[in-house]
């Protein structure tokens, strides 16, 4: 089996072969530029520019790989700013011993994700680290998008609606299940997906209604709501009965003692919008495959200013505190 060896980082023939025969041939010899920088032409607009690094274990999981995650994550970071994602970079840090076949699968999933999102991978870098100094593969992607329909972001007020484009906690829960040897009768996949088409559709139809938009990745939906309400004169209230949460996510969360509201999503956007348009926004989301389970999940209130909280099934309120550290499986 071919694996990554120190020679792949040498700067010599082995490295050139890896870059040309494996990386560029998969990611796109047509788009990746050979010089030290990619020269890009963008229409006259403001640009959005972002970067993110990906270190997830396991590197392959149901619904995606570290590669598709890296593309979609960066695409979504651009999209929630109202930008149309155009170009991304791909920097790979490979640990000695990584099977080339695995690398190829990851690169293919990157390419597929980029095609789906409509972005071009235009530049890249590859470094090799000794065995034990990395965790198979790390990826950094930076992205550039053009801001064509900017979001107005009027102030959030009491009565505004909190909307999400689908089920909560799928990605984080799927990963936790994999790490803890839980399996599924029907399956649970990561929700890893690019949201730019869905988001652009909403912005196009309701440029004035959207007051806040953020992809709910690490820390989950509850952390986004804490971000919105921090120091604010309003609170964010969720309705437990309105939350779209898959049975499998509920099951894993109960078994491991974790809370899906704090589990990562990789294809979910939380929107705060004028309540007049809330149902119309949900209807537009539902037209996209990434928005099939979209729902209004809460409202902005005067109660508990500065807090995110949830009205439970029985009608009591429960604070959704700021997450301090990563959730661990527990027995108590």
């Amino acid at each position: 089996m071919d694996i990554i060896v120190p020679g792949h980082g040498s700067g010599g023939k082995m490295m050139n072969d890896l870059i040309n025969n494996t990386i560029k041939s998969i990611l796109g010899s047509d788009t990746i530029q050979i010089d030290d920088s990619a020269i890009l032409t963008v229409p006259v607009h403001s640009i959005a520019f972002t970067t993110d690094s990906y270190t997830i274990t396991p590197i392959e999981f149901s619904g995606g790989t570290i590669g598709s995650l890296a593309v979609n994550g960066t695409v979504n970071d651009l999209a929630v700013m109202g930008a149309v994602p155009r170009f991304i970079s791909c920097a790979l840090i490979l640990e000695e011993g990584l099977p080339i076949e695995t690398l190829k699968r990851i690169l293919i999933s990157m390419k597929e994700a980029a095609l789906k999102a409509g972005v071009a991978i235009v530049t890249g870098d590859t470094k090799i680290v000794p065995k034990g100094k990395g965790d198979c593969i790390y990826i950094n992607t930076a992205g550039i998008g053009t801001v064509e329909n900017s979001v107005q972001r009027r102030p959030i007020v009491s009565g505004d609606s909190i909307i999400i484009n689908g089920t909560i906690g799928d990605h984080g829960t799927a990963i936790m299940a994999l790490r803890n040897n839980l399996s599924f009768s029907k399956g649970l996949s990561s929700d890893c997906a690019a949201l730019n088409h869905l988001i652009q559709d909403i912005i196009k139809h309701f440029p004035d209604a959207i007051k806040f938009m953020r992809d709910a990745t690490r820390g989950g939906v509850a952390s986004i709501l804490n971000e919105i309400t921090k120091g604010a004169s309003f609170g964010a209230k969720l309705f437990e009965e309105a939350l779209p949460i898959r049975d499998e996510v509920k099951g894993v969360s109960e078994i491991l003692g974790i809370d899906p509201l704090y589990s990562a999503n990789e294809g979910k956007v939380v929107i705060v919008a004028d309540s007049t348009y809330a149902n119309d926004i949900v209807a537009i989301m539902k037209k996209h495959p990434e928005g099939a389970d979209a729902a209004v999940i809460g409202t902005i209130t005067h109660e508990f200013p500065g807090k995110a909280y949830m009205q439970t099934t029985i009608g009591g309120n429960r604070i959704l505190p700021v997450l301090i550290e990563e959730q661990l499986p527990r027995i108590c």
Binding site: M310, Q311, T312, T313, I314, G315, G316, N317, R318, C332
Partner: peptide, 16 residues
């Protein structure tokens, strides 16, 4: 029981 401590809060029962 400590699990009761947490669940009284989490379910909102303590709130009512």
């Amino acid at each position: 029981c400590g699990t009761h401590t947490t669940e009284f809060f989490r379910t909102g029962v303590k709130d009512i």
